[in-house]
Each structure stands twice: as structure tokens, then as C-alpha cells.
Simulated assay, not measured.
Amino acid sequence: MKKQTILLIDDDPDDAEIFSEAIKSLNQDIEIEIYNNSLTALDNLKSSATLPDFIFLDMQMPHLNGNQFLDEIANTHNLANITVVIYSSYSQASLYELVISTRKVILLTKPNSMGELIQNLKTIL
């Protein structure tokens, strides 16, 4: 099985740590890269020779918010087909309102427990 790569963009270090621990607990061959700045993540994606299989994106980011990030990757040819999972503390309904329904994204509200996060990741990955 091919190693999956995940890019997490989240400026909350606690949320990033919990997410990373949840990924490790899956016991799958998954490589994770974490950015706390969406603009830096975008710049690195644009210049990278290898792209992630999934981008998990927090909507509330400094420098470049989630919608702006989504617009940028949608308009960048080699990034447009990466699966994006909106990973935010907003409710599903609020996320839907924030993200135009025609965008190809998966919506995931940050869960209240590690077990719930792990189960959601198993479903997505």
C-alpha cells in the first residue's frame, strides 16, 4: 500500500498535537506535515515536487483565511485536485455556509474527543 501524505494547516498547537497523535494511532503508513501559517503552507505547496494526498485546513487562519486558501489552490493547476478536508471548530452547518457548496471539499467539525477524531479519520482516509 502506498504511503499517504497529509498536510495539516492549523494555527492552534494543541489541536495540531491532538490531530498528529490521532494519525499516529491509526497504525497506517501516513506521513504528516504541519503548518501553523496558511500562507507559508501555500508557498511550499506551489514549489513542492511532491504533493499531499489530503490537506486538512482550519478555516480561521491568520494571513490567509480558509476561503482565501481554497481560492488559491483552486486557481493553481497542480494543486486543484488535492482533496481538502475543512477541519474547523465551526459546526457542519456553519462550515457549509462558509464554503461555497460547489467546492470539492470534505467538511469535518473538530470533535470533542480523541476517539471521535480517530473514527472520523478512519472514515476519511
Rank of each mutant, 00 (worst) to 15 (best):
E72N: 07
N81F: 08
V105R: 09
E97K: 07
M61K: 06
Q28C: 01
T50V: 01
P62Q: 13
I73V: 08
S88D: 08
L108R: 04
N44H: 14
I86Q: 09
V84Y: 12
P62H: 10
E72P: 00
D15G: 09
E116N: 12
K46S: 08
L95F: 05
Q68K: 10
Y35C: 07
S48H: 06
D58M: 03
F19E: 12
T123E: 14
I106N: 12
T102I: 06
I86P: 07
N81M: 06
L45T: 04
L45A: 06
L64T: 01
E21R: 13
T50L: 03
Q92E: 14
Y90T: 01
Q119V: 01
N120K: 15
I118T: 11
L125N: 03
K46L: 11
M61N: 09
D29G: 04
A41V: 00
D71W: 00
T40F: 05
I9T: 03
I30N: 09
Q68V: 00
Y87V: 01
Y96M: 11
Y96C: 04
A41T: 02
H77M: 11
L108Q: 12
M61Q: 15
R103A: 02
N36V: 03
L117A: 07
S101M: 06
Y96K: 14
A74K: 10
K46G: 05
P52M: 03
I86D: 09
V84Q: 10
L117E: 13
K46H: 11
I106L: 14
F54Y: 15
S113K: 12
K46V: 08
A49P: 00
F56G: 03
S38D: 13
H63C: 01
K104S: 14
S113C: 04
L98Y: 14
N36D: 15
F69M: 03
N120F: 10
N120V: 00
T5W: 03
A22Q: 10
N65F: 07
P52K: 03
L107H: 10
L70S: 07
T83S: 12
D10Y: 12
H77S: 13
K24H: 14
I124E: 11
T109P: 02
L57M: 05
L51R: 06
L42W: 06
T83H: 14
K104N: 15
N36S: 15
H77C: 01
Q92W: 02
E97W: 01
Q4G: 00
I124P: 12
D58H: 05
S47K: 14
M59E: 02
P62W: 07
L95I: 12
A49N: 13
D58C: 01
L79G: 01
Y90D: 10
I34H: 13
S101W: 10
S89Q: 05
S89T: 11
E31S: 13
S47R: 12
S88N: 06
I100M: 06
L121K: 09
H63R: 10
S88T: 13
L64N: 05
S91E: 11
F69C: 02
